[in-house]
Design a protein around this nucleic acid. Structure first.
Lengths: 118, 118
DNA sequence: TTATAATACATAAGAATATTATGTATATTT
DNA sequence: AAATATACATAATATTCTTATGTATTATAA
């Protein structure tokens, strides 16, 4: 299985943790694979988070105590659930508003106001 | 002179070339330092492009033939003007619409539609 | 007039974060 | 039985920033 994701993956850089935290905020506890699938369906298969990006990001968030984990066994298969810590709850809001600020700044550059269509 | 830029510089990653190309598109030919200053004033000192990011990005764009340069001397000081090549003209549109697609995808994640406020 | 700040370029070391590839193993579908 | 999907993980590599440093000219303020 290999699906070509969005054209510019570069833009994902710096937004992945925001995405993960927001998904956990919205859906409560989730496991890694579940996050990638939810993001895919949410974005109509446009945004595909690779495992090589996802798991290191989750581990980093855990090391930073923004998420906490609990293991479960589904049959013999291990599943690692992630959920927000109190710090994580705060971090989501920060990250999301940072992103929104950034988009607003980008709009200033991308959609410059002229005397005609300003 | 050292001004603290936006909180999350991570987000810049992947957008810098888009910014540069769009600035050249809007303002015609520009030199590096001019780009940083224009971006700063445009964004109310929020987005500060550092030299260590700017010049390598410009050199990369030149190597990729998206921009072309001409040197000028202002007194004894060299100034290197950049402008879009035909490929660069195409690339701006691509990059900008990629960015806009990305933002739309992020909105799907960040502002999920509920049955109440959807 | 002289020190400081602004202008204007450049590059190197290091950090962060992604891609791509690989590995392991279980469960489900064809 | 084979292929695909589920579910984790990590290593090598690439990209792209930050931070720091370097050089040099011009303008401004003390």
């Amino acid at each position: 299985m290999y699906i070509c994701p969005m054209h510019s993956k570069e833009l994902l850089k710096g937004s992945l943790k925001t995405i993960i935290l927001k998904m956990l905020k919205e859906h409560g506890r989730m496991y890694g694979y579940e996050i990638t699938q939810k993001v895919r369906t949410l974005t109509g298969d446009e945004l595909v988070i690779t495992e090589g990006a996802l798991y290191p990001a989750l581990h980093k968030l855990e090391a930073d105590k923004l998420v906490q984990t609990e293991q479960e066994f589904i049959g013999k298969r291990v599943r690692r659930y992630y959920s927000l810590t109190p710090s994580g709850e705060l971090a989501v809001e920060e990250k999301v508003s940072e992103f929104e600020s950034f988009v607003q700044m980008m709009q200033l550059i991308i959609q410059p106001k002229t005397s005609f269509n300003g």
